[in-house]
Design a protein around this nucleic acid. Structure first.
Lengths: 227, 227
DNA sequence: TTCTGTGAATACCTTCACAGCG
DNA sequence: CGCTGTGAAGGTATTCACAGAA
């Protein structure tokens, strides 16, 4: 284990391993191997070993990795043991949907507040009981709730300004859903999910393989049912 | 221009360039350069030129690129000129939010149908008027609407099965929002957006820089307002 | 023997730097 | 001259392959 910069490719895979180990844990499997993890995650076993070895020597040669122990290590490395409180800026369709999504809680992320600018939304609650605050109050609410992360679900023209407000409120990790490339100040991490880019990238694939919106479809071949 | 495999990194950037060119077009700019595009997109100008050169010689040495012309070429390459009809499987919070998001239309993607399994949802409509169909009818609806793309917004335990149904219905491009790693059959492209992975990757950043959910926050420094 | 941990090899992606053309 | 198009260089990520420990 040497001091080395960990790439985002690696951290994203750690998250995949964590989920895989949770699954094995639920199945009462006590020991696993890089090969088993690799098969379950469609990755290369050397990749798995290398990713894990950045953080310590968790395995036993000739045996493999202890599931429970490795799971706890990964949860610690990813910083999800204590959980995170998350705010969502923008209480439109997407913001509300994110606020009502119960999958976050399972992974230790709790949505504690929504924010909007429109008076008719402020003071309301999501169906899961999360309050919508005035964006003006963001600094106070972040302090009170001890939120550490934010999701941005605002229109493109508001994104940069909202991002500044969020950073000034003390948030250091942001998941941005607006179609704007935001520059992160020092010490702040911004990850963007741009649906248009994803869709257009898929569209390129269809074009490059000869499928067009107006083309009549060939009879689809039967595909093996999901296991 | 040689025959070469185009990476997904490149196709995603093409989508960024397209948006950049639309902006320039709106500003009545007639000619641009790799340097100008690079500055607006925070990329390297050689990268821009190389990406474009995979598909042809669109520029004029000593001058640059004609905005309108290049824009149309990129739209053609990405296959978004005729637009795509999109279905959404899963009419829960996320599926509905996606179905009501008006940003897709602007980029040429039209949501033509939602699908669910629950009888109480089938026959209803999204606020934007998109009908919710029975998942059983997916093949017929895909054929009738000539849909070419699908978004999956179903729970993890349904993801694999739903994916098979979608592929068997003739869809060849899928944007998957479920936290499951789906294997794409030959000729089918699946892109996944996994919110847990994104959040945990952000969580790692906070951990690695010493921020924890319970840590009291230092007074945030003022950040420059957005331009 | 089995399976980890890891240097070496490979593949891929980005940036440099410049020839060449308008 | 200015800017494209592109080979070469540099950097990063992945995979191979094997020494070494249980």
């Amino acid at each position: 284990m040497k001091i080395e910069k960990i790439s985002e490719f690696t951290t994203e895979r750690l998250s995949v391993y964590l989920r895989c180990l949770d699954e094995l844990n639920d199945m009462r499997v006590e020991t696993t191997s890089s090969k088993m993890i690799a098969e379950k995650t469609h990755l290369n076993s050397a990749q798995v070993r290398k990713d894990l070895a950045y953080f310590g020597r968790f395995g036993v040669r000739g045996v493999g990795y202890p599931v429970q122990d490795l799971r706890d290590h990964l949860a610690g490395i990813l910083g999800v043991k204590k959980g995170h409180r998350v705010i969502i800026v923008g209480a439109g369709h997407l913001g509300m949907a994110l606020g009502e999504y119960r999958g976050f809680q399972k992974n230790g992320f709790t949505v504690v507040a929504l924010f909007d600018r429109l008076p008719e939304k402020i003071g309301t609650f999501s169906r899961t009981g999360v309050p919508v605050h005035d964006i003006e109050d963001i600094a106070a609410v972040v302090q009170r709730t001890e939120a550490t992360m934010a999701m941005l679900a605002v229109p493109a023209d508001a994104a940069r300004q909202v991002c500044s407000l969020v950073v000034n409120a003390g948030i250091r990790a942001i998941l941005n859903f607006s179609p704007v490339r935001l520059a992160a100040p020092r010490g702040v991490k911004i990850k963007s999910i741009d649906l248009s880019i994803s869709l257009e990238s898929l569209s390129y694939f269809l074009s490059s393989t000869g499928v067009h919106a107006t083309a009549s479809q060939s009879a689809p071949q039967e595909v093996l049912a999901a296991r």
